[in-house]
Design a binder for these strands. Structure first.
Lengths: 116, 116
DNA sequence: TTAGAATATGAATAAGTGTTCATATATTCT
DNA sequence: AGAATATATGAACACTTATTCATATTCTAA
């Protein structure tokens, strides 16, 4: 494999791309963030939280899953800085971390011609 | 588990969330799109393609992987409608599908306080 | 402080996924 | 047409991950 060498210009392009590549740590952080929102069960949680902050029980009802499964997923979303947790008495209330999350969801829906 | 029933208001919230939940097909499409951009190796390809369209050989060089691995990853990105393929003689030239991709990457970088 | 309720977590299992190796397909050149 | 090149693909293996079940933790109320 030698590539389209008739366009030596592209060798430069590849070299520039290699040099401007983010470091592994940044790539891993980005991957973790996207991975957090790339599972159907977690996406459902995010769509639920778009309606407003909710405790675990209500999230569980909104997405139609079990308490344990939701709790595990919430942890991943929390660690990916996609959602925030706040204690309110006996409950823990979750909400979307910031406007970026809503914006990314909106962009993706637009990208796929969804209606959300 | 009964939830924070002292705020009967949240029962309505959960119910509204349940009703406004996108259908499973939409959720799966979204998940597939995000999953496509949630792997370090594929993210590197996207960052490479931000420099401009490239053939497989140059992508391989830019990300420092093997031809086969890159080809498999390109398929996933293609099927997730993240990138476009176009034949140019003996080569296949890949490029980012649309501005949404760049925008999502930028938002995520902003979200994580990255510099890209 | 003890009982009860809401949420979190560890272990186990089942399903999904990335890479490698070998090979197939498609295109160009002679 | 045949050889050479660029890219794609199938199978296999290692690794990751989502869910379930049982249990732990953290808070409130009495």
């Amino acid at each position: 494999m030698k590539g389209c060498e008739h366009e030596a210009l592209h060798d430069d392009l590849a070299e520039r791309a290699r040099q401007s590549m983010p470091d592994d740590e940044s790539i891993l952080s980005l991957a973790a963030a996207f991975k957090a929102i790339s599972e159907p069960s977690r996406l459902k949680i995010l769509f639920a939280l778009r309606q407003g902050e909710m405790c675990v029980y209500h999230i569980t009802r909104a997405v139609g899953s079990t308490q344990s499964a939701v709790s595990h997923q919430l942890r991943i979303l929390r660690e990916g800085h996609i959602i925030r947790a706040r204690r309110d008495g006996q409950n823990i209330v979750y909400s979307l971390a910031d406007a970026h999350v809503v914006a990314v969801l909106a962009l993706a829906c637009e990208h796929l011609n969804c209606a959300f």
